[in-house]
Amino acid sequence: MQVTWGNVTVTFSNPEEAKKYAEKVARKLGGQVELHNGQFRIK
């Protein structure tokens, strides 16, 4: 499962870890987490 924002992509084998990481990054950037085609995207 991947977490992407800007031109950065981070890949996780565990979807739960990916979700936690995406939420943490979104909080830092003041963005929203979207699940899109099996990727968490931060907008």
Rank of each mutant, 00 (worst) to 15 (best):
residue 1 M to S: 10
residue 1 M to P: 06
residue 1 M to Q: 06
residue 1 M to I: 14
residue 1 M to D: 04
residue 2 Q to M: 11
residue 2 Q to L: 09
residue 2 Q to H: 08
residue 2 Q to V: 13
residue 3 V to N: 00
residue 3 V to A: 01
residue 3 V to Q: 00
residue 4 T to Y: 07
residue 4 T to N: 07
residue 4 T to F: 07
residue 5 W to R: 02
residue 5 W to Q: 02
residue 5 W to D: 02
residue 5 W to F: 09
residue 5 W to E: 01
residue 6 G to H: 09
residue 6 G to M: 08
residue 6 G to S: 06
residue 6 G to I: 04
residue 6 G to E: 06
residue 6 G to L: 09
residue 7 N to T: 11
residue 7 N to Q: 09
residue 7 N to R: 11
residue 7 N to L: 07
residue 7 N to G: 10
residue 7 N to E: 08
residue 7 N to K: 11
residue 8 V to E: 05
residue 8 V to T: 11
residue 8 V to P: 01
residue 9 T to W: 05
residue 9 T to Q: 05
residue 9 T to S: 07
residue 10 V to L: 12
residue 10 V to M: 11
residue 10 V to H: 07
residue 11 T to V: 10
residue 11 T to H: 11
residue 12 F to I: 04
residue 12 F to W: 03
residue 12 F to L: 06
residue 13 S to G: 09
residue 13 S to A: 12
residue 13 S to L: 10
residue 14 N to A: 07
residue 14 N to Q: 07
residue 14 N to G: 06
residue 15 P to S: 12
residue 15 P to W: 14
residue 16 E to Y: 12
residue 16 E to T: 12
residue 16 E to R: 10
residue 16 E to W: 12
residue 17 E to H: 11
residue 17 E to C: 15
residue 17 E to G: 06
residue 17 E to W: 09
residue 18 A to I: 02
residue 18 A to W: 03
residue 18 A to F: 03
residue 19 K to S: 07
residue 19 K to F: 14
residue 20 K to L: 13
residue 20 K to E: 12
residue 20 K to I: 12
residue 20 K to V: 11
residue 21 Y to D: 00
residue 21 Y to P: 00
residue 21 Y to E: 02
residue 21 Y to I: 03
residue 21 Y to F: 14
residue 21 Y to N: 01
residue 22 A to K: 01
residue 22 A to H: 00
residue 22 A to P: 00
residue 22 A to D: 00
residue 22 A to Y: 02
residue 22 A to N: 00
residue 23 E to P: 00
residue 23 E to K: 08
residue 23 E to M: 11
residue 24 K to N: 09
residue 24 K to P: 00
residue 24 K to G: 08
residue 25 V to M: 14
residue 25 V to Y: 04
residue 26 A to G: 03
residue 26 A to H: 02
residue 26 A to I: 03
residue 26 A to E: 00
residue 26 A to F: 02
residue 26 A to R: 03
residue 26 A to Q: 03
residue 26 A to S: 04
residue 27 R to F: 08
residue 27 R to C: 15
residue 27 R to W: 08
residue 28 K to M: 14
residue 29 L to F: 11
residue 29 L to I: 14
residue 29 L to N: 04
residue 29 L to Y: 10
residue 29 L to P: 00
residue 29 L to S: 06
residue 30 G to Q: 07
residue 30 G to F: 05
residue 30 G to P: 02
residue 31 G to F: 07
residue 31 G to S: 07
residue 31 G to I: 06
residue 31 G to T: 06
residue 31 G to V: 07
residue 31 G to L: 10
residue 31 G to N: 03
residue 32 Q to V: 15
residue 33 V to F: 05
residue 33 V to R: 01
residue 33 V to D: 00
residue 33 V to M: 05
residue 34 E to I: 13
residue 34 E to M: 07
residue 35 L to W: 10
residue 35 L to K: 06
residue 35 L to Y: 14
residue 36 H to V: 15
residue 36 H to G: 05
residue 37 N to I: 04
residue 37 N to L: 07
residue 37 N to V: 03
residue 38 G to N: 08
residue 38 G to R: 05
residue 38 G to A: 03
residue 38 G to I: 02
residue 38 G to S: 04
residue 39 Q to P: 00
residue 39 Q to T: 11
residue 39 Q to R: 08
residue 39 Q to F: 07
residue 40 F to W: 15
residue 40 F to Y: 15
residue 40 F to D: 01
residue 40 F to T: 01
residue 40 F to Q: 02
residue 40 F to H: 03
residue 41 R to N: 08
residue 41 R to Y: 15
residue 41 R to K: 09
residue 41 R to T: 13
residue 42 I to T: 01
residue 42 I to L: 03
residue 42 I to G: 01
residue 43 K to W: 11
residue 43 K to S: 11
residue 43 K to P: 05
residue 43 K to F: 14
residue 43 K to G: 06
